[in-house]
């Protein structure tokens, strides 16, 4: 780092420790949450930069869904999509699905961090529980944003005609971050209750598929049996898919409602996960 000195410095190693003698000043409380969100997102980006294999392996599943499922149902032409080719209709659903999977399994990552002591140590820093959870939720969002862009590119390569309007793409990223914040907090909440990795893995697998099928990701709500329609209506994933379709394909949707549902869901998720996070440390 520093230039090589002409002669070895006569002073001891401690002479360089000027900065370490003064403790950092506390930040005003209102700046804690944004500061921690930045810290957690930076870590997530650093990890992505070091190891990109996850980026590639996570691209396989959505590609298969679009190629096999999308192509087959494109031909069968049995799903009423309102005149859109089925593969186009499916693409936003797959963006939502694949980012949800990443977020749900983020809770496992939290348990791993607990077991390895990383989380324990973060819990002893001047970071309120809510700030830590919000930070982790947005860090999961960073992962999801990258995934959404990857799926977008795959879809484009497969000939899906999605929008490339910058404002709509920003909207897509915002939707994906909010959705991931909710699902990662759901997962952290379950982690706080289940407390072990195996149990969480089981619960995670048990809930992701129902969440996926009880949403409009694969087919419009109107073609579901009525009991499933009720579940779909309270499933935040449906609002995420709806918003993504509206933004990327221009299908009719109530964007303010979609955003409102996602914001409220994320806020509730953060509150629940913050309340249970302390349990993980015990």
């Amino acid at each position: 780092m520093s230039a090589v000195p002409a002669a070895p410095p006569p002073v001891s190693a401690e002479a360089g420790q000027g900065l370490l003698f003064v403790p950092p000043r506390a930040r005003p409380a209102w700046r804690l949450i944004p500061a921690r969100v930045v810290a957690m997102c930076v870590v997530e980006l650093q990890k992505l930069r070091h190891d990109r294999t996850e980026l590639y392996t996570r691209a396989i599943q959505p590609a298969l869904w679009l190629v096999i499922f999308g192509e087959t149902f494109n031909r069968l032409n049995v799903i009423p999509t309102g005149g859109i080719p089925y593969r186009d209709y499916l693409a936003p659903g797959i963006i939502a699905q694949s980012t949800m999977f990443i977020a749900i399994f983020y809770g496992i990552h939290i348990i791993w961090e607990r077991d390895s002591g990383v989380l324990t140590k973060l819990l002893v820093t001047p970071t309120p529980r809510a700030a830590l959870v919000t930070g982790k939720a947005f860090a999961a969002g960073v992962k999801a944003m990258v995934q959404a862009l990857v799926v977008l590119v795959i879809a484009a390569l497969l000939g899906v005609t999605l929008t490339w309007q910058p404002l709509r793409l920003v909207g897509m990223l915002a939707v994906v971050v909010l959705g991931s914040a909710f699902f990662s907090c759901l997962s952290m909440t379950i982690a706080g209750i289940a407390r072990t990795r195996d149990r969480l893995l089981g619960i995670g697998q048990a809930i992701t598929m129902p969440l996926f099928f009880a949403s409009n990701a694969l087919y419009p709500t109107a073609s579901m049996p009525s009991w499933l329609q009720v579940i779909s209506a309270i499933n935040p994933l449906s609002y995420e898919v709806s918003a993504l379709r509206g933004l990327l394909l221009g299908t009719p949707t109530n964007l303010p409602l979609d955003f409102a549902v996602l914001v409220v869901a994320a806020a509730l998720g953060i509150a629940a996960a913050s309340a249970l996070l302390g349990r993980l440390a015990r």
Binding site: V43, Q46, D51, G117, T120, K121
Partner: peptide
């Protein structure tokens, strides 16, 4: 803490 708590996937 007692366990090794550095994050192995960071420098």
């Amino acid at each position: 803490p007692q366990q090794l708590s550095a994050d192995s996937s960071l420098t």
